[in-house]
Amino acid sequence: MTSRLPTGSQTVGPFFHDCLLREDARRNILAPPGVAGQRIRIEGCILDGDGAPVPDAMVEIWQANSYGRYNHPVDSRDLPLDPQFSGFGRSATDEEGAFWFETIKPGPVPFDKQRNQAPHICVAVFGRGLLNHLYTRIYFADDPATADDPVLALVPAERRATLLARPTEVDGSLVYRFDIILQGSAETVFFDYQELEQLR
């Protein structure tokens, strides 16, 4: 079959909130009570190349459940699904550039036939001035598996820290801090995805 070129990307612009973040479309809370797993809160800010907060961005996340199972037909492994947990989150940034999610820590998921990936959360960043969205990932700084993650291993060692969420305890809750720096010396690592034929 002939291959078609994909439709190109355009910025989300400044006026998306009434649509993409209406009450039944925003998803700050991924895990209502009863979802299995370690409850965590993720907090961060998006900063531009001047270190100024980005107040009109949107962050989406996608993650496996605590058993490492994705709620998606492509993942048909024999692991428990949690019907209350879709794994998708969507947060605006506020005037301080801040976003947040309440979720559970995901389990490990496979990389290839031999290796697992460390627990991680996929992140996409949208905003005025971003002609394409940006893909990155949240890893957990305090998880021993992070050191052996095969995707993180492809990131230059001196930049890996930009993908590590740092745990803190706030009022007895576990909060992971993950800032997203769009530009500059501490710029967050962003990804471009390639097909990996070995997976098939």
Partner: peptide, 10 residues
């Protein structure tokens, strides 16, 4: 951008 493979996550 860092080139990484598509995995089950993506």
């Amino acid at each position: 951008l860092i080139e990484v493979p598509l995995t089950l996550s993506e």
